[in-house]
Design a protein around this nucleic acid. Structure first.
Length: 291
DNA sequence: CACTTGACCTGTCCGC
DNA sequence: TGCGGACAGGTCAAGT
């Protein structure tokens, strides 16, 4: 689901809405996704104030005044939707929102604040999770420690970007792009979009990708991620932002979910293949197998 | 070790 | 209309 631009869009929305709010209660019905929530809620969550909302890769971190943090991963179908109190979602335009009244049958956790506002964690497929843990231990989480650099970090150079990929020389460039320990935050949509931008076939092995292609890939990846954040992310079916609104990146997508349509560069019909176990969209003319 | 595949879940869509 | 199978934005554990 949500990849870097979608999680970042949610983070920006929540950062405007929740800092300063105090937790009053938490309701959840699916212990498997929230292993330690029940045990620690009364001591470290109730009565705590939200200090900040941060993102690392595809994970969100809400830092609390209790010294604890909520770490949240939305996986494929997770949503975090805020309701300031009483009003319907969608800003008066029902078609802007995929969400009707909450809670609904995909609601897994309801965070209620002292002022009456609520934050709903919805997740149709139940892959997502929420953890409550001491803030200073967040950076020691195994998956956080292993995460690659943020692709949009100002200090990241094309050279460092390229070197990260060479940790996986014998895998396909697409599998490496999707590997969160190589570069953080890239998922299926922006992998396909950036590979098209760089005219790279997704199944080419990392060791056979030239330094010039890596430079192009780095540039194109940053371009699609920034553009998507500007557009509020991509909404296929489930994704909505903190206010329940869809993002519009997919109407700008060049190949993703566009099989059968003409390549915007050369007009060749876009095809869908399978690479790294994932549905993969390419222009067979622009993204030819290298000789 | 490096890499790929299946499993985790629910819902939807497509072909018969 | 019903039913089976494939597939969906992610990530692990298990398999080769």
């Amino acid at each position: 689901m949500p990849e870097l631009p979608e999680v970042e869009t949610i983070r920006i929305g929540l950062a405007k809405l929740v800092p300063g709010l105090v937790f009053a209660r938490v309701d959840f019905d699916w212990p498997k996704g929230f292993p330690n929530l029940a045990r620690d809620v009364s001591k470290h969550l109730i009565g705590a104030r939200v200090l900040s909302v941060k993102r690392r890769g595809k994970a969100l971190v809400l830092e609390l005044s209790s010294g604890y943090s909520l770490v949240i991963h939305l996986k494929m179908t997770g949503q975090l939707v805020f309701n300031g109190g009483g009003e319907r979602f969608g800003g008066g335009h029902p078609n802007d929102s995929l969400i009707g009244d909450l809670p609904d049958k995909s609601t897994r956790v309801i965070f209620s604040f002292k002022n009456g506002a609520k934050l709903f964690f919805n997740d149709q497929r139940k892959f997502g999770w929420v953890r409550l843990m001491p803030s200073r231990e967040v950076s020691n989480l195994e998956f956080i420690k292993k995460l690659g650099p943020e692709p949009l970090a100002s200090g990241l150079t094309a050279r460092e970007f390229t070197e990260r990929f060479h940790r996986r020389p014998n895998t396909s460039i697409k599998a490496a792009l999707l590997d969160q320990t190589v570069i953080a935050g890239v998922g299926n949509i922006y992998a396909d979009e950036s590979l098209w931008g760089a005219r790279l076939h997704p199944a080419v092995l990392v060791k056979n990708v030239s330094i010039y292609k890596f430079e192009a890939l780095f540039r194109e990846l940053k371009y699609v991620l920034k553009l998507s954040i500007e557009k509020g992310g991509s909404s296929d079916r489930n994704y909505v932002d903190a206010e329940g609104k869809k993002g519009s990146y997919l109407s700008f997508a060049r190949v993703f979910r566009r099989e059968g349509q003409p390549c915007p560069r050369c007009g060749t019909k876009i095809i869908k293949i399978r690479v790294a176990g994932r549905g993969t969209h390419i222009c067979p003319h622009c993204q030819r197998w290298p000789k």
